[in-house]
Design a protein around this nucleic acid. Sequence first.
DNA 1: ATCCTATCTGCGATTTATTGTCAATTGGTT
DNA 2: AACCAATTGACAATAAATCGCAGATAGGAT
Lengths: 149, 149
Amino acid sequence: MEERAVLDMVRQRGYRLTPQRRAILSALCRSQSPVSAGEVYDQIKHLLAGTSVDTVYRNLNQMAEAGIVVAIHAGREVVRFELQVGDHHHHFVCLACHRIFCIPLCPFEAPVSVAVDGHAFKVTGHSLEVYGYCSQCEPSEEATSDVRV
Amino acid sequence: MEERAVLDMVRQRGYRLTPQRRAILSALCRSQSPVSAGEVYDQIKHLLAGTSVDTVYRNLNQMAEAGIVVAIHAGREVVRFELQVGDHHHHFVCLACHRIFCIPLCPFEAPVSVAVDGHAFKVTGHSLEVYGYCSQCEPSEEATSDVRV
DNA sequence: ATCCTATCTGCGATTTATTGTCAATTGGTT
DNA sequence: AACCAATTGACAATAAATCGCAGATAGGAT
């Protein structure tokens, strides 16, 4: 998504376009894969001297609540964020290099419904992460401990 | 799973059966749903005076690596653990009360394979959590912020 | 252009989950 | 009974994330 469109969306939602917020959004637009608050901070602190980590956290969480970005919780990795783009998808997490790749996969065609013992749950969403090794990484013993099936 | 069988399994893997470890395993056996390290600690500290939280963490992680228990990372919830029972399943997380329910659901019949741009990933596992509200909880505004789709 | 105020930010301190170190203890094998 | 590697407890140490608050500022109103 182009940065321009993102900025417009953010302003439409009633958020002010502060330099910090611009920098954060810009970092999100630039990154190929989901990034953590810390990574965003590392990128923008050079540009905006004096920017605080709090601001990054605050904004990412705020925008996650507003649905502008999506928070990705993968195992014991730190939370990562990506811009909410139109199509629903999930992620592949490399257990060796810890990079996250978007994969155009969702096993559910229709909204999920869940019932256990005739007891229905109200489902509002789901998260799916696929674990393994990317093409640049070889499986190693130390890394396989995280594997969940 | 009966506690006896679990203790046997643990000993077979070469772990000593210390009182602390017995207590932790017992707590896992007793709980209906996945529990966090803190919750386990709260349960056993009354029984074994002087037990440290460290021990609980160490054991849960150790047993997670050994495949005796499974670690469940759901959103920004704390890590929870459950005994590794035979059948593969996933979890429903209530956004209001934060309880976790096991659901006998897995959308994948066969091992997943993932390829993006003709680039194949080696898949070793996956995690799926379904979010929503359990039958005892009503959706509330403050709680819906966590929703992920 | 200036003003005004609700929104935002930076700072410093804090919380909370989790891990590391290491000496002392102990399970269970001999 | 003795031995020793596995295990534990105490304490310190991280690291991610949050909080409270005083000062700054975006951007609509004038």
